[in-house]
């Protein structure tokens, strides 16, 4: 999620519906197909050397009892993974991670879609609004976390504003109350990345044919029916990308949680990522942290590919 802003243009381009077949495009594809396969070798070797091999070697530590410092380590098989199954903190973190990922995915995309529909109009200030709504996505998540942590203190701006309007019953200890701290973090993430989802939906909306919309309007279709039967199918690629990015970002969420609550109060906002960090770097239980990270990586990969196939199929059959 943190690197998402840098990819926005590329992703937005990918989200836009693929144009109808063009002879020129076909010639380009043919030329690309003619490039010798071994041209990919330098980049592939670099990727293997810098990413793949260190990752595989790192994953190997999950099968040892290395503490992250000692010169010695023993092979312990799947012992670290067995610990994970019986660790109450691990189970709690998995539940929190799923809650966060699910709620962020739903709320962020709903808000992003509504914002996109709102600014995909002919109002004069639409460009200013687009920039303003996207701006939070370019702020580093750590800075956002500190900003909202400050706003959410018991004497912070949010409670002050609520008090100013006489809504004292709504005032809360947003990050200190174990029952709502998790949702305060979710709200912060949605605030930051709803604009990012909006941009991807906007790119998709650019490809909705005006003549079809106009025809449906003439046929008497109302706004909801126009959206459901004309706009939604055209947005399928954008929906796929948005859902995938937000669910991956939600599952991996670390920065905002760490800055705002460090997993507390108690363990009420601990996620897989914060627990991985705590075990590896605070408890000196490096191998267990790696085992958790490996499980998370596999989990994210399975979920993402399943989601991609499911939504891709739906998009294809629109």
């Amino acid at each position: 999620m943190s690197s998402a802003d840098s990819q926005s243009l590329a992703v937005a381009e990918a989200a836009a519906p693929v144009p109808l077949a063009r002879p020129r495009g076909a010639r380009i594809s043919a030329r690309i197909g003619a490039v010798p396969w071994w041209f990919v070798l330098p980049a592939l070797a670099f990727y293997v050397f810098v990413v793949l091999w260190p990752s595989i070697e790192g994953a190997g530590f999950a099968f040892t009892n290395w503490d992250g410092l000692s010169a010695t380590k023993d092979f312990v098989g799947f012992a670290q993974f067995q610990r994970l199954l019986t660790d109450p903190a691990g189970v709690g973190a998995v539940v929190h991670t799923l809650l966060i990922a699910l709620s962020i995915t739903i709320v962020q995309n709903l808000v992003g879609l509504l914002l996109a529909l709102g600014v995909h109009t002919k109002i004069k200030s639409r460009n200013v609004l687009r920039v303003a709504l996207f701006t939070p996505a370019v702020i580093t998540p750590v800075a956002t976390g500190y900003l909202w942590k400050y706003l959410m203190t018991p004497d912070g701006a949010i409670n002050q504003i609520l008090g100013f309007f006489g809504l004292t019953a709504l005032q809360h200890d947003w990050l200190g109350d174990a029952n709502i701290a998790l949702w305060s973090i979710v709200a912060t993430v949605v605030w930051q990345f709803a604009g990012y989802s909006m941009v991807i939906f906007l790119a998709g909306l650019q490809g909705v044919p005006e003549d079809v919309l106009e025809a449906s309007r003439l046929d008497g279709a109302g706004p909801f029916r126009r959206f459901w039967y004309v706009v939604r199918p055209e947005l399928a690629p954008a929906i796929t990308i948005n859902l995938m990015l937000s669910i991956i970002g939600g599952l991996k969420l670390f920065d905002q949680v760490w800055v705002m609550t460090s997993g507390g109060p108690g363990t009420s906002t601990d996620t897989m990522s914060t627990l991985i960090y705590k075990n590896a770097f605070q408890f000196g239980d490096f191998s267990y942290g790696i085992a958790m990270a490996l499980v998370l990586a596999v989990f994210v990969a399975i979920l993402s590919s399943a989601q991609y196939k499911l939504l891709g199929r739906q998009g294809g059959s629109k």
């Binding site: 109350d177 363990t267 408890f283 239980d285």
Partner: peptide, 21 residues
């Protein structure tokens, strides 16, 4: 003997203050 004891103290005190344990 390990860092986990202190980290556990941090966590349980927060839970105590929150009435969770």
């Amino acid at each position: 003997p390990n860092a986990r004891v202190q980290q556990t103290l941090f966590q349980v005190v927060q839970d105590l203050l929150a009435g969770k344990t």
